[in-house]
Nucleic acid binder design. Structure first.
Lengths: 246, 246
DNA sequence: GCGTCATATTGACCTACATCAAAGACACAC
DNA sequence: GTGTGTCTTTGATGTAGGTCAATATGACGC
């Protein structure tokens, strides 16, 4: 399971009986959060649990949007492409996040697993039927999409107006926040994505990401342990760098 | 009513009796679209119509998010600022669009009228109460926010990966689309915003926007009539430039 | 151990766009 | 008409980050 672009056919589906929503271990942010037992059971009935290996394509931009997904384990990257191959990441997803937003019934982006991951899959049509009967669910979804939109606007500010250091610092900080920080100094944050994924997320090249990280390392603001991931040594300086305060 | 930053106090409020939703002339995309008469009346009961002059600040980033708004006439710009004053436009709004998305009950961006405009204002608390009773309304809102999110992702691709010509071309095309094109050749599109607003929307400087426009003019792809606005002379070339196909 | 492959880092050079600066082009007041 | 303020255009020059190219590092298989 090493190569770069399998199709969604390669996913492994399990029936909902095997892995029902009741046993779902996703913390607080998932689609199913804040539903009653009865509602959970209804949602469970239309969902399927999927395992996807690292590098597997989950959805393809401009394919018909048949499903919505909820990440339950692992991580996923979302991206859009220009005809000549230039790529823009639109997000990295972790357990609890959803994907499958569409435009005219076509997916608005492609999605690929960053590592071996598990997803919960909902047929769009059936889910929309459920939405009409479970206002709690629709409410939840509205909150999640609104939250996404706010993050997207932050990202526009980053892409349009921040410098390379500011971009990389902001990115590291957002990862720390996502990880639900125990707020100790010397925070270690996992980086399941490669430098070029980060570059395509920040509107930079691989090389610039690399150079910027080694600069931060030289300033003792971060450390780059050989096991992968990044250690935040000086959160305060990083916060200032991210907003251009220096 | 000429200067640059009045506060929201300067807006003129009218009671809902004066300008109720029933008389609202906004086409098809507004919040209130697709509601029954009964529902419209409920919505009308909590809404207030506002007139704001050009340059007036409607909401301020990080202020408590007390209201949601729906643009019914004119146009509005949304933006975020960095501490040192760098600005990123997150959107231009026209009749039918809404604003007031929040994060932790604080507005996620500032909004200012581009020209004399009219808005429909809803107290957030009351609107959320309504949402629980009017699933149609919540459904509508979910669709609008999802649509916004898709556009935001397109904008990320633009900001992170497109060149200046591609950005400006994409921008002009999106304006044509928004205007609901009668699809004649020689399309005239209004530009209520200045060059520097456009620059801050596209992640460019005023000068680069200006230079790029005069280049397009020299290539006979657009014309810049002295009355303001821009005339699209060669839509096809513009489409190709926008996607980097040349 | 060694070889292979993928990804990351570092260096030398280049360019698209920013910055700085100066001149037009309007609009409005008087 | 003339003056004033704002916005746009054009030109000259600078630079952050891109591009091209050469190592370096690490993971895995044998």
């Amino acid at each position: 399971m090493r190569s770069h672009s399998h199709t969604a056919n390669a996913v492994t589906a399990q029936s909902e009986a095997y892995s029902p929503c009741e046993n779902c271990n996703v913390a607080g942010m998932s689609l199913c959060h804040a539903l009653s037992c009865e509602e959970l059971r209804e949602l469970s009935a239309i969902s399927t649990s999927l395992e996807v290996g690292r590098g597997v394509t989950i959805i393809n931009e401009t394919d018909p949007a048949e499903y919505l997904f909820n990440v339950t384990a692992g991580s996923v990257k979302l991206f859009k492409l220009l005809p000549d191959g230039r790529r823009q990441m639109t997000g990295f997803l972790f357990p609890g996040d959803f994907l499958g937003i569409a435009m005219n019934d076509l997916y608005a982006y492609s999605a690929e697993a960053l590592e071996d991951s598990r997803l919960c899959r909902f047929p769009r049509e059936k889910l929309e039927g459920l939405l009409n009967r479970l206002p709690q669910l629709e409410h939840r979804l509205l909150n999640m999409v609104s939250h996404e939109l706010v993050l997207a606007q932050d990202q526009m500010l980053l892409l349009g107006r921040k410098t390379a250091v500011e971009k990389v610092s902001s990115f590291l900080i957002s990862l720390v926040k996502r990880a639900g920080k125990p707020s100790t100094e010397r925070q270690l944050v996992a980086l399941p994505m490669g430098r070029s994924d980060i570059g395509d997320y920040l509107g930079l090249t691989t090389e610039t990401v690399s150079r910027t990280l080694t600069n931060l390392k030289k300033q003792k603001i971060i450390a780059i342990p050989s096991g992968g991931g990044i250690e935040i040594l000086d959160q305060e300086s990083l916060d200032e760098l991210a907003e251009g305060l220096d």
